[in-house]
Nucleic acid binder design. Structure first.
Lengths: 248, 248
DNA sequence: AGGCAATGCTTGTATATACAAGTTGATTGT
DNA sequence: ACAATCAACTTGTATATACAAGCATTGCCT
């Protein structure tokens, strides 16, 4: 979805032969989506692409530059071009809690894995995750702490067939999110934000009274792989900052 | 802010003379921000910029192209380059209610102006709107209806000195939002989403029980003009969809 | 071994040119 | 008066070239 849509901006009807730079973009996106080029991997330089595709440097450059503008690649003068890390991508930052941003500048931020199990697949889940009939789902709850205080509870549903070793991992050195982001390649998602009253067992985890309103952020991936859908419940009073947009 | 930040990506320390294409970007942004070039206005063509700034066409083109990628301009082969309409900008769509999207395809969507008055400026408001001491504020509540049902209440604070005729307008032909977007030029904003329990008089307007959790979206402009800050309260069950981002 | 300089590779900026393709408005012929 | 054609202008794609600037390694010298 990521690559296909990017290119469809330029070639509308598809009967015309695609522009050369879109072909290169496609090539790069496919390698990233398939996992061939993981995060931080070095992508071919402008000169290498120039030779591979028999185009001028400016044409190869355009492909790299547009993908950089989309946050898929990161370029460094003198060093090269690299696949963007999920940290270097603005997407997650846009939906992260404000307190997370503060915690990056010094405060500790620990995530505690609470629950990790394979669960039965309901019809709703199957649709949400775009599952086939015989695929299983892992469910996990991750309680995020900050200075000992629980600030958000993450409910994560993962397509088991796509991360078979998920249950075996020991998430001490790397976080489960880092693991997922290394296994699951770049994809596209929408976020839905809703105000809810948390149910009882979640209230206990977040240490709040039952009447407190909570933000729930539900992420749905749209990729054909349908890896994961997750909901994040924040403790009351939390705010989500949605980055800077041009408005009015 | 819109233009300054865009260019700061390229010239970090500023002691180096800025790149030519950033000068052109700055020029264009300033004309848009000042209102000189309103929405849908035609901006100079590549050839005109080439002559004005004494650069090659590719350099002028780069400025136009980068601003187009940011959604500030819209280009049409054969016709020209134009200032993007707020409708053609993705920003508002990203923060709009899902039911709004549905209503665009046929359903009626009426906004009812409820209240429109000048109010006293509290300290909090002054900071929020970046006001000087002697500036006034207009406060208005707009109840958005859909099929007769109230779906969201917009609380809007406008810097009175910047839209002096706001009180005099009769918002029947154009909506107040359309009026603001025509008066207030393109600017940058952040959105903060929070879950709240609506206070009593808001509950009456939205026709909900008091214990229902509501989404509150607060928008803050960061431009030096500090025109408007608004909060949107949605009725319970509403979801906000945050567009597509690349994740993981 | 440690520090330093040179070198090659990388991306960044800029220009000049050519042709393709879409839009618009004027001109021309019926 | 109307319609078709044409010309001018616009953006889109592509190439070739040049130099500037940042990074990393190599290898030399001390």
């Amino acid at each position: 979805m990521a690559s296909a849509n990017n290119n469809s901006n330029n070639s509308s009807t598809k009967k015309d032969k695609p522009a050369k730079y879109t072909v290169i973009k496609q090539y790069i996106c496919e390698n990233i989506e398939s996992g061939e080029w993981p995060q931080n991997a070095k992508v071919p330089s402008e000169n290498e692409l120039t030779q591979q595709f028999d185009v001028s440097r400016m044409t190869a450059r355009r492909a790299l530059q547009e993908l950089t503008a989309q946050g898929i690649l990161v370029r460094s003068q003198g060093a090269g071009t690299f696949v963007a890390t999920f940290k270097s991508q603005s997407s997650l930052l846009k939906i992260r809690n404000i307190s997370d941003e503060i915690s990056e500048r010094g405060h500790e931020h620990k995530a505690e894995q609470l629950l990790l199990q394979a669960i039965a697949v309901t019809d709703e889940l199957a649709i949400l995750l775009n599952l086939k009939n015989n695929e299983h789902v892992y469910y996990s709850e991750i309680l995020h702490l900050e200075n000992g205080e629980p600030i958000q509870l993450e409910q994560r549903y993962v397509n088991a067939s796509l991360v078979p070793e998920y249950l075996l991992q020991n998430f001490t050195k790397i976080t489960s999110h880092e693991y997922l982001s290394s296994v699951a390649p770049l994809t596209e998602a929408t976020h839905e934000v809703e105000a809810v009253l948390a149910e009882q067992h979640i209230c206990q985890l977040l240490n709040i009274e039952e009447i407190a309103p909570c933000l729930q952020v539900r992420r749905r991936t749209w990729s054909k792989q349908g890896i994961v859908s997750l909901a994040i419940l924040t403790s009351p009073g939390s705010k989500y900052r949605l980055g800077s947009h041009l408005v009015f």
